[in-house]
Design a protein around this nucleic acid. Structure first.
Lengths: 239, 239
DNA sequence: ACCTGAACACCGTTCAAGT
DNA sequence: ACCTGAACACCGTTCAAGT
């Protein structure tokens, strides 16, 4: 298979990340006003301060005091920019757990820390599509999880699948939560009314337990899934 | 809190779904060429045949042989259309498991069936944001899960949190998978090269086990997470 | 060698005007 | 009462032209 410059490589694939690291040295030929890092950081700032839908090339150029066209000297498309910014964010979201905890407490702490980070930066969440997975910061996070899970007896393959499941679940549950914020008390009340108004013959449980079910919130759902994953690890290291 | 017509309600919230069902009767005043159902179905067709980025109001109108403006008689925004189409898709993705299986096999079958459906319709996946959660078809799915999990001894609250965790995990893992398709053999080979090229001091495990880790694929990761959730249910019904 | 202005081909949404 | 054409204010991306 030939590597042809004409066929564009999809951002976030192994091929794309690889090409990026291999061409790293011949990058900075001259002093520039702009840098890729600065652009990615500014993108994150825009996401935090103005939300996901504000991340446009025009808005970014405005913040950087340059033309939109100038951005395309550092990045071949908006997609590419998003992938790079997301891996950058993964670096920011990666916090070291307090020492002295057992593996279960450590993993729990990390999952909660990551979730809290994402909830505090909701603008990032729509862009987390797995394409950041092979970026340098994401790989640092993976290395950390691999170290932890292999240290307690999982095989390398198991540790990788486990870490992926954790990441998937945390990101997925935050996306789910932000889709409709169930912490809003009024939303909760209306959800109850919605359940109550259903056809009791087709929805016997939802109608009968409308009040109770309307109270089940995102933290509860997250706690269940997280405990499940931790239990599964416990089973696999003892067996 | 007053319900003001001037303040738009975010699509997918309880308030929005509620208003929709309550105003259902005074909808069809006259015969129309277009219907909401037809529009939503056409949207799904576009997603399946042309992919996620092809779902524009112009493209939709073209398929329906009407003007873009006509769509806005049935839907107040593209967001709304997406939410409705996604709930519709949830109805299509809901398949009844073969009878006679135990709870674990049944749940496993359903999770795989849902995953297969999403993988077969990748155009849907970017739009699953949890906003479809309270739609009629999604609620039918929820009722099904609730029935299963309460039947084996979980409380209603536990059953709801469990079902949510399952849904979150399935959707999240498919999003993750489609972000970068790791079933591509060339991608796998390149991923190995990517791992091998990392700094061994900062990434000791990834570099040492590059080949093995590059082989871990999406089915394996999914199997781990699913087994974990099923184990967790088993623990909770026996304890 | 680097950056820009202006354009191109798209978006979602609105609204006066038609029938 | 219903639908439309045409416009508005945006997008991402390109490229000849500047310095």
């Amino acid at each position: 298979m030939r590597m042809d410059d004409a066929t564009p490589i999809r951002a976030g694939t192994a091929a794309w990340w690889l090409a990026r690291t291999e061409n790293a040295d011949d990058r900075p030929r001259r002093r520039r006003m702009l840098s890729l890092d600065l652009i990615a950081d500014t993108a994150l700032t825009v996401l935090d301060t103005e939300g996901a839908e504000a991340l446009t090339m025009r808005r970014l150029a405005q913040r950087l005091n340059c033309s939109q066209a100038a951005l395309y000297r550092h990045v071949t498309s908006r997609d590419e920019l998003v992938v790079l910014a997301m891996d950058r964010a993964m670096g920011l979201g990666l916090d070291l757990p307090p020492p002295g905890l057992g593996w279960r407490e450590t993993s729990e702490w990390q999952a909660h820390s990551f979730r809290d980070f994402l909830l505090a930066h909701p603008g990032l969440v729509p862009f987390l599509r797995g394409t950041e997975r092979l970026g340098p910061n994401s790989l640092s996070g993976m290395e950390l999880w691999l170290g932890q899970f292999t240290a307690i007896g999982l095989s390398v393959r198991e540790a990788y699948a486990t870490a992926s499941a954790f990441a998937t679940f945390v990101i997925g549950s935050v996306q789910f939560t932000l889709g409709v914020d169930s912490t809003n008390p009024d939303e909760q009340r209306l959800r109850r009314r919605l359940y109550e108004g259903l056809d009791p013959r087709r929805h016997p449980i939802l109608t009968a337990h409308a009040e109770e079910l309307s109270q089940v919130g995102s933290p509860e759902e997250f706690a269940f899934g997280l405990a499940a994953l931790l239990d599964a690890v416990a089973v696999r290291i003892s067996g």
